[in-house]
């Protein structure tokens, strides 16, 4: 581990159960142990609906674990910390704010003076290539551009921990590859630790230092794979490398089993 002190994120035996509307107790994650080092990019893959997203809400402080502990920078999580950034699956930009105002929102919420917030927001808009769109409203942008606004709005807060919940799953394939590259570039400058949840194994290998495979729900860590592909990576190119395919096969043999279990359960439920 390359951290000076404690790891960026640590989950120790964390479980989370929800009450379903019918009153039954649904366990989303159970007995979860996961460590993310400082500056590490960790991708979490698992079958659909297994509770990957719940892991992120536990780390962010949006939800509390029913059991176990969640530590961020060695401190137990109590409420939403100011070190965390979160990119959601769906659009979470404010539709009534312009692009610039959306990116300014974070610093303004945190009490940064307007002029400084504007300056920082402009800087990040330039980095995601949206400088000429700062006066537009979100509905006037494409899906990829809205995602860029969301990225800029998250990065402008200088998060030490970046949580991403299938951020690119709503985008078309070409845009997704492009956004992945841009994410890697943006991240490289910040030294933030990333937890990236996805159901796309290719995406996870191309992006991450470490791929965590979750079991079928209730989710827990099944296996962790180190990805030893050299950086900087280009998503479209790295996919073609023999080592990539080797890793893919290795992880898929582990993940495929869980996917099958989930599928069979679904088939039972349908029947």
């Amino acid at each position: 581990m390359n951290s000076q002190t404690s790891p960026a994120i640590e989950l120790r035996g964390a479980s989370k159960a929800f009450r379903t509307p019918s009153g039954a107790l649904h366990t989303a994650v159970r007995d979860l142990d996961l460590t993310v080092g400082r500056g590490e990019f960790v991708a979490v893959v698992g079958p659909t609906g297994c509770g990957k997203s719940t892991t992120l809400t536990l780390v962010s402080g949006l939800e509390e674990p029913t059991e176990g502990e969640v530590l961020v920078a060695g401190e137990p999580v109590r409420g939403i910390g100011d070190k965390v950034g979160f990119v959601f699956q769906q659009d979470a930009v404010f539709p009534w704010r312009t692009v610039l105002s959306n990116v300014m929102a974070g610093p303004r919420f945190r009490g940064v003076p307007k002029a400084e917030a504007k300056e920082r927001a402009r800087e990040w808009l330039a980095r995601v290539g949206l400088s000429s769109f700062e006066d537009r409203y979100p509905h006037q942008l494409s899906g990829g551009m809205r995602k860029r606004v969301a990225l800029a709005a998250t990065f402008v807060n200088d998060p030490e921990i970046l949580l991403m919940d299938e951020p690119f799953s709503a985008l078309d394939v070409q845009t997704r590859a492009l956004m992945s590259d841009e994410l890697l570039e943006l991240w490289a400058g910040t030294g933030a630790s990333v937890v990236f949840v996805t159901h796309d194994l290719e995406e996870s290998i191309a992006l991450a230092d470490k791929v965590v495979v979750m079991t079928a729900g209730p989710a827990t860590v099944k296996e962790v794979f180190e990805i030893d592909l050299p950086r900087p990576r280009k998503v479209e190119q790295v996919r073609m490398e023999p080592r990539f395919i080797e890793i893919y096969r290795e992880i898929w043999s582990s993940l495929g089993e869980e996917v099958r279990i989930t599928r069979e359960r679904g088939a039972v439920n349908v029947a």
């Binding site: 949006l62 100011d82 965390v84 959601f88 404010f94 929102a105 974070g106 919420f109 945190r110 998250t154």
Partner: peptide, 19 residues
């Protein structure tokens, strides 16, 4: 999502209500 996002971005309860 919008509420969760604004809270992550650092909004207080009052800011969530008004903004």
């Amino acid at each position: 999502n919008l509420v969760a996002n604004s809270r992550i971005l650092g909004a207080s309860n009052r800011q969530v209500t008004f903004q």
